[in-house]
Design a protein around this nucleic acid. Sequence first.
DNA 1: CCTTGACTTAAAGCGAACTTCAAGTTGTAC
DNA 2: GTACAACTTGAAGTTCGCTTTAAGTCAAGG
Lengths: 155, 155
Amino acid sequence: MISYVSEVLISIGEVADRTGVATSALRFYEREGLVRAVRSEGGQRRFHRDSLRRVAFIRVAQRVGLTLEEIRDALDSLPQGRTPTKADWERLSRAWRPRLDEQIAVLQRMRDELSSCIGCGCLSLRACALYNPEDAAASLGSGPRYLLGNTPADL
Amino acid sequence: MISYVSEVLISIGEVADRTGVATSALRFYEREGLVRAVRSEGGQRRFHRDSLRRVAFIRVAQRVGLTLEEIRDALDSLPQGRTPTKADWERLSRAWRPRLDEQIAVLQRMRDELSSCIGCGCLSLRACALYNPEDAAASLGSGPRYLLGNTPADL
DNA sequence: CCTTGACTTAAAGCGAACTTCAAGTTGTAC
DNA sequence: GTACAACTTGAAGTTCGCTTTAAGTCAAGG
């Protein structure tokens, strides 16, 4: 009798199957405000179909190097009240382009410096461009700035 | 009377000053087997000068995207007993080149796919090349494979 | 000799993005 | 109506690359 509802709202397991994202991750995303879900009478999560696109956006954005916090901010800029359109998603994704360009540029610079630096002895000097990553934190971006040893104090 | 020793062996503070790497990080590197130090009579660390180059190597390798474990393996392949030569370091660093090339290629592919994918609707599909990062784990590499959700189980 | 800064240790903490666990509840297919 | 998969929660655990803390000991200049 309410079978039409089951076509509009999907369970966490179905979202997991369709996006390839684990249920534990989806629950985590909900806690962090990246996706939303209504509840069944019994208290189980029921996601709207456009959650699939949100989740897809999250994963692609992560590959580009955004943190979940940045992604949440981006998602928060989507219009509330109506389902986001193709143009909405396009606007968000377009912001990735410069970021990708910059990441590529940094890696290319490193590769070039590697050629000129290898074996020259400068590897131990703080003056070496390879060793001194002026812009590494900004451009390798994203994920593991802390993994690269860049704490706020370093900057 | 032992001043000549102080020219050959340097304290952790001096290594920190010269490399820009925190003493806590250097102690951590020693625990993890990335650098070695002898001890003063009072129990303080005394590093050989070539530790400076090892530390520099570690930091540059991290920028390339190697984990400390990979770096340790690389350093373990250095000749024992004698101080590594310029050629030794060159051999290790040369291995980075393909890695950098691959990282650059992946990002370029993503950029290109971004252009063709934006707004096309495929963002929500598992068939989308942007969404399905066949090689992301291998090439975005290094640092935060787990940040991208790639656990051993995924592969 | 004494002060002071540099050093020592083990253990705990951090931040990001999750996963795992335990102990139970819901939903559905037969 | 019952079995069983899928779901629920909060809390704790994981990984990586460190940093911080506490409670000291060592080394060097005056």
